[in-house]
Design a protein around this nucleic acid. Structure first.
Lengths: 217, 217
DNA sequence: GTCTATAGAACGATAGAC
DNA sequence: GTCTATCGTTCTATAGAC
């Protein structure tokens, strides 16, 4: 193969395989074959299988989290001294995912799937990714949410944010399967529409009346 | 080992390994060692790795779906000719998971994690499980939701149910990680409390105002 | 019904030529 | 920077003794 493009082709193939089969299910043999190269290239460019997949995650996640912080800051500016609108907070958390998925013009559903993988990855890989990429963003959004919903105990805010993140990650992981069977009318390629729907769903959920934690069934 | 209990010990170990590492990440060597037996036992009792893990899923999922159908029918009876309360529909979908997790007295978080795995399993395994265990239940709940929310287009009902299921599966997959870092105050063992919170969150989300699908950001 | 032993293939990683 | 060849390990599955 001509030199200089192997690294990018490896990352591209890694996204495909990692999205479809996760860390454990991804074979470096298949991956390098799909990238038109060989096993040795992985070690030369990245050092190991794990380092390749971590680098892929870094490349994809970091720009999203940068967008999130910028959109959150913009929402703060817009609100001035008033409380930030809940819709703007969750827009800042959700919409950058769509921006990243659409970066090459048409929607990259493989990337969505890869993002959805994170949640059920094995603990070692998960822990490394979360502590590397997410603590600052999560704390920023949590404290903004606490400020916006003063009536809600911090524990309840954390639960609801947890549900919101779960819904996002699950929706991403499942998005490619929404087209099958009875859901064919759903517009798969309208990632932005999906995220807007999800934002509205989650904002309403976040505003659910708080029963004090001891309500009966 | 004494005869007659190997099959059960294999299923128990399978739950642990499948929950932690998924299908691809589960090794029959480690699993059979943890079960105090050997590789040959898997083929004798189940036929293959895949058959063992599918059987585990069947044993866990089928009772939940049976509970769901019974609770949905009970909610129908309770409502009579009036529309069923949204809270009762999602209680019927969510709470049986907790009942299954608590079946041995104290909460079985491993089972929750296993259930959360489903969503990002490789397509072959996923497809087989979903078409084997879920189509009837999903259609029953979807048509009940359509009946309960007459103002909402069926496509929108499907999207919101999709988000609700995603939130459930994601919350299950992540539940064991909620104890770490800043969330230590959250009561991990209160699975029923978590599901009640999630039910309220999702019901509020499902009632989000419908903008007609073309609302701006 | 349970075991040991092993077949046969696939795995990640690396040495060394070019 | 890219390749071939191969090392040492681990994988699932199975044959056959008890």
């Amino acid at each position: 193969m001509e030199p200089g493009q192997t690294k990018e082709r490896l990352l591209q193939a890694a996204e495909q395989f990692y999205a479809e089969h996760g860390f454990e299910g991804t074979s470096m043999r298949e991956l390098t074959a799909a990238a038109g190269t060989n096993l040795a290239a992985v070690n030369y460019h990245f050092g190991s299988k794990k380092a390749l997949l971590m680098e892929l995650c870094r490349i994809r996640i970091e720009p999203i989290n940068q967008d999130r912080m910028e959109m959150l800051e913009a929402a703060r500016q817009k609100a001035g001294s008033a409380p930030i609108l809940l819709e703007d907070i969750f827009a800042a958390f959700f919409f950058p995912v769509g921006r990243q998925a659409l970066q090459d013009g048409k929607p990259n559903l493989t990337f969505l799937r890869m993002a959805g993988r994170l949640i059920s990855e094995n603990d070692e890989f998960y822990e490394e990714m979360v502590t590397a990429f997410f603590p600052v963003v999560v704390e920023a959004f949590l404290s903004e949410l606490e400020r916006t919903a003063p009536g809600l105990p911090p524990v309840e805010v954390r639960w609801r944010f947890h549900f919101a993140v779960s819904a996002l990650v699950g929706a991403l992981a499942q998005h490619h399967r929404m087209g099958s069977s009875k859901c064919s009318e759903l517009e798969l390629n309208d990632v932005e529409g999906m995220l807007r729907r999800l934002r509205d769903f989650v904002c309403a959920g976040f505003r659910a009346p708080y029963e004090g934690g001891e309500a009966g069934q």
